[in-house]
Amino acid sequence: MGNPNKMSRNEKLRHDRLTFYKDDIEQIDKLLAEFLRLSGAKCALLIDKEGHLVTKRGELRTIDIDTISALVAGSFAATKEMARLLGEEEFTAMYHQGERDNIQLGLVGDRTLLTILFDDRTTVGMVRLYANETAKKLADIYRASQERHGDDPGLGEAYGQDAKKSLDKLFD
């Protein structure tokens, strides 16, 4: 990412926010569903590096998505510092092994993480193989989206007015 002070307005907007459109998410969802079918994993979450969920596919039971997303992003961020100490820019994949459930994390593009939950119905090798393929296809979708959508459409004027009312309602 470039120096934000030298960016054009639209570049800065792209730098300061991450926007996902409905048509992109439909494509991503299809890709994730296909990934789950091929790999035998239980669930796939796509989250951004700040720990916000982008989309999810598969069985989740009672997992608190917001919390798991924040923790995944936090642990991934921590490895970046480890990588830096070793002279790497960042590690692109991580694996947490449990007794029953496991998590595989992989960087997609430079701003999102593909988080896969799987159990003993499949193997880490299968998950990694298909995850790598899926990550490449996801990166292609991001690139195509950026070319297709161009400028960020924003949230519209009503958003600012409505936000004030909602804040009053929550905090007063």
Binding site: D16, R17, L18, F20, Y21, I25, E26, H52, V54
Partner: peptide, 9 residues
């Protein structure tokens, strides 16, 4: 960074 997700609204 703000994330705007038009699919999840």
């Amino acid at each position: 960074m703000v994330q705007i997700n038009f699919a999840l609204k």
